[in-house]
Amino acid sequence: MEYSEKVMEHFVNPHNVGKLEDADGIGEVGNAKCGDIMKMYLKIENDIITDVKFNTYGCASAIATSSIATDMIKGQPLSEALKLTNKAVVEALDGLPAVKIHCSVLAEQAIKAAVKDYYDKNGIEYNKADFEFEDHHH
């Protein structure tokens, strides 16, 4: 098994690590039993993600995925952020070993969970089906 240089870059120096005390939406996915938890904090103004931070417990793949996914949605409108797929994240990392794909799914899910939290907190209507994913990737 081997990680791409891009993965190692993001793992060694992950971007956007931390918390936002005044976050507008927080999403947490995964669980300790499976060895990955990702918590995403979003600051949202006029439907645009103005800031994002994450906390992740997990392997290099989980940390690198969190880092690059937060980069990819920062400054984006919510509609765009919600379109971010696991596939796009993996491609941006120049691929992941096959056994590691499951660790990367969390980023996409964490973003959705954080946006849903924002919608819920602000009474914004949304299509529930768009936010349904299996509670965990296993």
Binding site: N55, T56, Y57
Partner: peptide, 11 residues
């Protein structure tokens, strides 16, 4: 460093 970014550690 790992614990600082770990939601599990926070818990």
């Amino acid at each position: 460093r790992l614990r600082d970014m770990s939601p599990l550690w926070e818990k």
